[in-house]
């Protein structure tokens, strides 16, 4: 049997530098770290609530601090970007949708998702302003 030819395998170091699409992908995935961080922050609030009034007031006090405001703004930006990219790839993850025998175009699914997002956010905002 002929021996297998000697081949050269290139290393993958700094692979994200090779294409802008890779950096966009890492940014998209990276924003989910912020989503997780915010979930932990809310969990901390719940733990404080269980611990008692003093602990919960301490947590609420922290909400007013500049660090918290910056954290919230950063989280909002990360959430918005993450949601936007999530809706962008949504048509790739949904089963084929047909309407009157024709496939629904990707941009329609994307727009529908954006509208649903906008309306849901608006309802939440109205409810929050009314009851809080």
């Amino acid at each position: 049997m002929t021996p297998a030819p000697k081949t050269y395998v290139r290393p993958m170091n700094r692979w994200w530098m090779r294409h802008p699409a890779y950096r966009r992908y890492l940014l998209r995935e990276g924003t989910s770290v912020m989503v997780a961080a915010y979930a932990l922050f809310l969990l901390a609030g719940m733990v404080c609530l269980v611990l008692g009034e003093a602990a919960f007031n301490l947590w609420r006090g922290f909400l007013q601090s500049p660090v918290s405001v910056i954290f919230h703004l950063a989280a909002l930006a990360a959430f918005a970007f993450h949601a936007w990219t999530w809706f962008k790839v949504m048509p790739l993850t949904t089963p084929p949708i047909r309407f009157r025998g024709r496939s629904v175009p990707d941009r329609m699914i994307f727009r529908a998702a954006l509208w649903a997002w906008g309306i849901a956010s608006l309802i939440l905002l109205v409810l929050a302003m009314r009851f809080l």
């Binding site: 294409h19 699409a21 790839v89 084929p96």
Partner: peptide, 23 residues
């Protein structure tokens, strides 16, 4: 697959593997 998505962009025949995989 983690849906980097570049496979579908570079496909010269517009096969869209990212869609096939994620479905």
């Amino acid at each position: 697959c983690t849906l980097v998505g570049l496979c579908s962009e570079v496909c010269p025949k517009h096969v869209d593997p990212a869609r096939a995989i994620n479905r």
